[in-house]
C-alpha cells in the first residue's frame, strides 16, 4: 500500500509516495532523481550507496524509505557548498582518489563521517574504516592518501 514519506534531503524538505518496500536509495535515486548515490551490490557490502542520515553514515540500500521519515539526509549532491567542493571532495581530486567514479560518492560520504569521528586518522584507521566500501579501480592507495589529506583540510 503506497504511503507518503517526508524528509529533508540536502537541506530541502521533500516528500513522495512510496511502497513500504521502497528502499531509501530507490527514493533518493528514482523519486528525487539524485543519481549520485549508487547501488553496487544486493548484500549491503559495497558501500556505493552510503549517505548520511541524521549526521551518520548509513547504507541507503539497507534502510527503507519509510524508516527515514522525518530524517535529515545528506547525499553526495549536497556536500559541495556554493559551487565549491567540500575539502574531502577536493582531496580526492588532488590525490587521484578515484578512477571510474562509481564507488566515489559512497567513499567520500564514508570518509566525511570518519573525520567527524576521528579528526586525525592514521593510515591503519582509514583502511579499517573503509571495510564497508569496495573500490575495484584504485587499489585504495590514493583513496587512503586522499582521506588523510581531506581530514587535515577539514580541521
Amino acid at each position: 500500500m503506497p504511503t507518503t514519506v517526508s524528509m529533508t534531503v540536502n537541506g530541502k524538505k521533500v516528500s513522495g509516495s512510496v511502497e513500504p518496500r521502497t528502499l531509501l536509495v530507490q527514493f533518493i535515486r528514482e523519486t528525487l532523481g539524485l543519481t549520485g548515490t549508487h547501488v553496487g551490490c544486493d548484500t549491503s557490502q559495497c558501500g556505493t550507496c552510503v549517505v548520511h542520515v541524521d549526521g551518520k553514515s548509513v547504507k541507503s540500500c539497507t534502510m527503507l524509505a519509510v524508516q527515514a521519515e522525518g530524517s535529515d539526509v545528506l547525499t553526495i549532491e549536497g556536500l559541495a557548498k556554493d559551487g565549491k567542493l567540500h575539502p574531502m571532495q577536493e582531496a580526492f581530486r588532488e590525490h587521484h582518489g578515484l578512477q571510474c567514479g562509481f564507488c566515489t560518492p559512497g567513499m567520500v560520504m564514508s570518509a566525511v563521517d570518519l573525520v567527524k569521528n576521528n579528526k586525525n586518522p592514521s593510515e591503519h584507521e582509514i583502511r579499517d574504516w573503509l571495510e564497508g566500501n569496495l573500490c575495484r579501480c584504485t587499489g585504495y592507495h590514493n583513496i587512503v592518501k586522499a582521506i588523510a589529506a581531506g581530514a587535515k583540510a577539514m580541521a
Binding site: S44, S57, V58, T62, S110, L114, N117, G132
Partner: peptide, 9 residues
Amino acid sequence: IGDPAVRNR
C-alpha cells in the same frame, strides 16, 4: 561488527 555504516544502524 560489520562496517561503520552497519554499526550506525
